[in-house]
Simulated assay, not measured.
Amino acid sequence: MTQKTVIVTGAARGIGLATTKQFLAEGRRVAMIDRDAEALMAEAAQLQDVLPVVCDVSRPDQVESMMAQVATAFGRIDALINNAGVADFGPIEETTFERWRSVMSTNLDGVFLCSQAAIPHLKRVQGAIVNIASISGLRASTLRVAYGTSKAAVVHLTQQQAAELGEYGIRANCVAPGPVRTKLAMAVHSPEIIAAYHDAIPLNRYGSEDEIASVIVFLCSGNASYVTGQTIASDGGFQSTGVGLPALRS
């Protein structure tokens, strides 16, 4: 089979769904991976050239089964987008170990497990890995001890992947989104937080899911053939403006 394929985790909504649609638009087949079976199947039913697979990326057995299913169905795996993630915000002293491990198991362990399982397939085609971190992994902020630390680890894991897998022609890069106008963000961000972000971001607005997806798709394309080990902050310039916002301290 010669049609290029890609695996997108966390594909049932948000950035993962937007990325899926952009890959489809350029002619790739997409394996849509998510642990929310109902949402995944509902979205996949509206698309063509997709393979929905219910999988919790923090579970080694499920990841192994998912990767085998995708490889059998598609015959090849050209790119892996490690987008699945969870957010848990709160003060350090209120973050229990259970909450800490819940975030790490998906945000970090999931990236490790999916990448490791995909490597044999990516070697055959000199494929690409794109890991989704966050601006919270590049700059400290309040209430993000587990989330921010997990995303900082993803940035370093990306560099480890680039250093070790480059000899096989596999490129590994990372995208660190800033504030993105998702339905969830708009539901939980207060007017005060929205105004604070507007003032702190040089472009004076939230990003869109499609804008993040465009960077991901670029990193998997031939136009990025000499780009590896990099983290691109798709954040409207937010990283350049300092750390912490008073509106995000409680």
Rank of each mutant, 00 (worst) to 15 (best):
Ala12Ser: 15
Arg13Gln: 14
Gly14Val: 08
Gly16Gln: 07
Lys21Ala: 03
Lys21Thr: 07
Lys21Pro: 03
Gln22Cys: 08
Gln22Thr: 01
Phe23Lys: 07
Ala25Leu: 11
Ala25Tyr: 07
Glu26Gly: 01
Arg29Trp: 12
Arg29Leu: 14
Val30Glu: 09
Ala31Tyr: 12
Arg35Trp: 15
Arg35Pro: 02
Asp36Asn: 14
Asp36Cys: 04
Glu38Arg: 14
Glu38Pro: 01
Glu38Cys: 03
Ala39Gly: 01
Ala39Phe: 02
Ala39His: 04
Ala39Leu: 11
Met41Asn: 15
Met41Cys: 05
Met41Gln: 14
Ala42Gln: 13
Ala42Thr: 04
Ala44Ser: 15
Ala45Ile: 05
Gln46Glu: 14
Leu47Met: 14
Gln48Arg: 15
Gln48Asn: 15
Gln48Ile: 11
Asp49Tyr: 13
Asp49Lys: 12
Val50Asp: 06
Val50Ala: 09
Leu51Trp: 12
Leu51Lys: 12
Pro52Lys: 11
Val53Ala: 10
Val54Ser: 09
Cys55His: 03
Cys55Arg: 04
Asp56Glu: 12
Asp56Leu: 09
Asp56Gln: 06
Val57Ile: 15
Arg59Phe: 03
Pro60Ala: 10
Asp61Leu: 14
Val63Phe: 14
Ser65Gln: 14
Met66Lys: 05
Met66Leu: 13
Met66His: 08
Met67Cys: 07
Met67Trp: 07
Ala68Asn: 15
Gln69Ala: 13
Gln69Arg: 13
Val70Asp: 00
Val70Cys: 03
Ala71Cys: 02
Ala71Thr: 00
Gly75Phe: 06
Ile77Ser: 03
Asp78Trp: 11
Asp78Pro: 09
Ala79Cys: 09
Leu80Gln: 02
Asn82Met: 04
Asn82Glu: 02
Asn83Gly: 02
Gly85Gln: 04
Val86Glu: 03
Ala87Lys: 03
Ala87Pro: 01
Asp88Lys: 11
Asp88Gly: 04
Phe89Tyr: 14
Gly90Val: 07
Pro91Ser: 01
Glu94Ala: 11
Thr95Gly: 00
Thr96Lys: 05
Glu98Ala: 14
